[in-house]
């Protein structure tokens, strides 16, 4: 299907750049949808870009209690997340780095990013940072099994954890829906919401330090470092969505490297990402943030769903 060549490599890198470049747009669109559904006008959908550029030009205030961990964490975070994005197909059914890593590596890289972000929360010697870090680790240690089980289901269905193989066999699948995938999709949806810190797990729009998860960890950041964190968060969000889209809804993904196929793939991907983004944003306005210790219930539902998915696969 895809021969390793300079062209495929270039196309692969371009699709990652597309993902990285358009990720803030998704954030912007979701904010806009949320605002509209709350009867507000809301900021421009380009606002996340303005924010990032503005933050990058600002001076930084660094706490005197911090160490090199604090200064390097956003860079490691960004690099890890952006590298993870390299492995995820967007509009093509393959990624050129598919041989260097699989979906477990993508998760590993996200974990690496998280590890440093959590450490940076502890590094500033502020109770808020610790609060956020502790909650983040609680969530992630529970999401880990849910995610692994989802991957289990998916890899059973498509016979791979290699993302290129996954997406190609998903795209080549005659049967549109299989029961096990249906369960895996439910689970994956919960995980995406949890991983990206949306409601009902975490309220990205809150100003209350005491209720924050992700925002509390990065409370001490400013300037370039904050820009990196925000951008990395957007990239992570779109990467997870891309993963979900291309595994569960692979229709229209480009299986050859012709301009038409790629163009169509890109458009279809954009439409699907927007649609899911809008759905998530809509859910966010319609649900209250769950009580912190109820959140494991939701993750347990994801786990149970994957478990049933596995049962259905083997039947």
């Amino acid at each position: 299907m895809f021969e390793p060549s300079f062209a495929t490599l270039a196309a692969g890198i371009i699709q990652t750049l597309v993902l990285i470049a358009f990720s803030p747009l998704l954030t912007g669109v979701m904010r806009k949808v949320k605002a509209r559904s709350q009867k507000r006008i809301g900021a421009s959908i380009l606002q996340p870009y303005y924010d990032i550029v503005k933050l990058m030009r600002k001076d930084e205030v660094i706490s005197d209690q911090t160490s090199w961990i604090f200064k390097s964490a956003p860079w490691i975070n960004f690099a890890a997340v952006a590298t993870a994005a390299l492995f995820v197909p967007v509009m093509l059914a393959y990624s050129p780095f598919g041989l260097a890593g699989d979906v477990l590596l993508v998760i590993g890289l996200f974990s690496l990013a998280r590890f440093f972000t959590v450490l940076s929360g502890l590094d500033s010697a502020s109770a808020f940072g610790g609060l956020g870090s502790s909650r983040e680790m609680m969530l992630s240690s529970l999401i880990e099994p849910a995610l692994f089980l989802t991957i289990f289901t998916v890899s059973l269905t498509f016979g791979a954890t290699n993302i290129t193989t996954l997406v190609s066999s998903a795209a080549g699948l005659q049967q549109l829906v299989t029961p096990s995938l249906l369960f895996a999709l439910i689970s994956m949806f919960v995980i995406v919401i949890a991983e990206t810190g949306r409601l009902p797990f975490d309220n990205p729009a809150t100003h209350l330090e005491l209720t924050m998860v992700h925002e509390a960890m990065v409370l001490e950041y400013s300037g370039k470092l904050l820009a990196l964190i925000e951008w990395a968060q957007s990239i992570k969000h779109l990467t997870l969505l891309a993963l979900m889209i291309n595994i569960f809804f692979p229709w229209g993904v480009a299986t050859s490297l012709s301009a038409a196929a790629v163009g169509e793939g890109l458009l279809v991907f954009a439409a699907k990402a927007l649609a899911i983004g809008v759905i998530i944003a809509f859910i966010e306005t319609r649900v209250a943030k769950w009580r912190l210790f109820r959140i494991p219930d939701l993750i347990a539902i994801a786990i149970a769903s994957s478990m049933v998915g596995i049962v259905f696969f083997y039947i």
Binding site: F158, L173, S180, L182, I186, S305, F312
Partner: peptide
């Protein structure tokens, strides 16, 4: 692993999955 040339949508299994959900 599902063979790519699987038959038509398996309505029975899917409906049972939906019921399960």
């Amino acid at each position: 692993m599902i063979p790519t040339d699987a038959p038509q949508i398996d309505i029975l299994t899917i409906s049972s999955a939906v019921l399960m959900i």
